[in-house]
Each structure stands twice: as structure tokens, then as C-alpha cells.
Amino acid sequence: MGSTYISETFSGIQNPLSHDNNPHLPLSLCELEVVRLISQNYSGRDIAKVLNRSEKTISRHKRAAMQKLGVRYVSDLASYVQNNGLGNVQP
């Protein structure tokens, strides 16, 4: 496998959504967007339509996010988002 090359233009830029910069954000961009929409009371079907993805994919992102954040219920996920300011993060 080859090495990853990062141009000098981007080498000094840190991803604001990386786990290193914010311990509350071990989420992928897709997981974060799904979590944000769940916290805004979107259903899985509505999120799938908005993001142009299948409901199964949305469900997988939701489950992964819940596991990464250590929550068991969707209501806890929405509370986590609100309590940790994740609803304001733009992917």
C-alpha cells in the first residue's frame, strides 16, 4: 500500500471534527449528520430522503453513533447532542 500525501496547503489544517480536537466527536461525518437530524426529530425515513441514502444505511449510522457515544436509547442520543453542542457543528 502506498503512503498518504498531504499537500503543504492542507498540512497545517486540522479537522475540527476529529477525535483529537474534540473528545465528543469520534463520529464520522455521516454519523454526525444523522445524529444532528435525529436530535431535530427527523425520522429514519425522513433522514434517508434528506441525505439521499437508504433507511438501512441511516439505521447503521445511527447504531454506530450510539455505540461510539455510549448511549442506549435514541432519546439519550438527542440529549447528548444538545448537551454537548453537537447540534451546531456543521460537517
Rank of each mutant, 00 (worst) to 15 (best):
V35M: 02
Y73W: 08
K49Y: 07
L77I: 05
L32P: 01
V74C: 02
E33S: 06
E55N: 03
I47K: 00
V34L: 02
L37F: 03
H19E: 15
P23Y: 07
D20V: 07
E8K: 14
V89C: 07
H61G: 06
S39E: 07
L86R: 01
G44E: 12
H24M: 05
V34E: 04
Y80N: 05
R45W: 01
L25W: 08
Q67L: 06
M66E: 13
H24F: 09
A64L: 05
V74D: 02
I13E: 13
H19Y: 15
G85M: 01
A65V: 01
Q67Y: 02
L25F: 13
H19I: 11
T4F: 00
I13T: 12
H24V: 06
S39M: 04
V81A: 08
K49E: 12
L86H: 02
Y5V: 15
L25M: 15
N21M: 12
L69Y: 01
R60N: 06
C30Q: 09
A78I: 05
L29C: 03
G85T: 04
T9Q: 10
P23S: 14
P26C: 07
S43L: 08
N22L: 05
M66L: 09
I13K: 13
S43G: 05
L37Q: 04
S7F: 12
L86G: 02
G85S: 04
S79E: 15
I58G: 02
P23V: 07
R53V: 04
S18L: 06
M66F: 04
S54W: 10
N52G: 11
G70I: 08
C30M: 10
F10S: 09
S3W: 06
P91Y: 02
N22Q: 08
V35L: 01
Q67P: 00
L86W: 00
V50E: 10
N21D: 09
H61R: 11
N22H: 04
K68N: 03
K56L: 10
L17P: 04
K62G: 02
N88K: 13
P16M: 06
D46R: 10
D20N: 14
A65E: 01
L17C: 10
V34Y: 05
H19R: 15
I13R: 10
Q40E: 11
E55G: 02
G85N: 09
Q14R: 14
S54N: 09
Q67M: 05
L86I: 05
